[in-house]
Design a protein around this nucleic acid. Structure first.
Lengths: 112, 112
DNA sequence: AACTATACTTAGATTCAGGATGTATGTCTA
DNA sequence: TAGACATACATCCTGAATCTAAGTATAGTT
């Protein structure tokens, strides 16, 4: 099935993977798929543009690495600002889930 | 703050409100905002197109109601297919949340 | 030689929420 | 009677973000 990733969630997943250690683009995608039990699919058309935006915003830093075998890789490192951004996005995600579940919950929810 | 509604979540919220009882467009929007504690904002530009799609898919049925006072309203009723669609969307939402949280959870998650 | 896996890039299409605007009606107030 | 405001629906345009698809390139396998 593999539901499409929702708007804005791809950068959060990328930052999450990088919080566990430096990683290059292709491996980030495979790691997200592995962790999600193959429910999420990370397409190149979503991954690389998202990485470029994160780099422009200084949340990650990329550096080319030449290997003895195979094509060159761009390895990304999470910056200090990236760690903070991840924490902010996690908090935002939790608020969203709580709020959405509250609306789904039923008719008798009081906010006061 | 009021985080933007994510892709595809607006129809689910509409169906949820209609599951509690028939309702016209404007009131659906206000009800979603009330239930979310004003965290979600339902704009017209998202609400009415979503309602039209739901009507085209026969998940809801709209009927014009003339009032003794004030402008006419289009009151929507959730169909049988709409109830099933809501259940399907809720299950999909739960799967998405669980999967996303699993990825956010950390590096040592096993899927086997 | 063809296929597959790795690895990054980019162009184009699509989807969908938001902003802005327009049409009406009715109430309240100055 | 003019205005501001709330109700109520509709639509156009924009912009953000994802997907599809194709392209470039290296290297191992069949």
């Amino acid at each position: 099935m593999s539901r499409d990733l929702s708007r804005g969630d791809v950068p959060t997943l990328i930052l999450t993977v990088l919080a566990d250690g430096n990683c290059h683009g292709y491996a980030i995608a495979r790691e997200i798929e592995r962790k999600s039990g193959q429910l999420f699919q990370m397409r190149e058309g979503a991954l690389y543009p998202a990485l470029r935006v994160l780099e422009q915003d200084s949340f990650v830093e990329g550096q080319w690495e030449v290997q003895p075998s195979g094509p060159a890789r761009k390895v990304y490192v999470l910056t200090k600002a990236g760690h903070e951004e991840l924490a902010r996005r996690k908090a935002e995600w939790n608020t969203y889930v709580e709020t959405f579940n509250r609306v789904l919950g039923g008719p008798n929810v009081q906010t006061t």
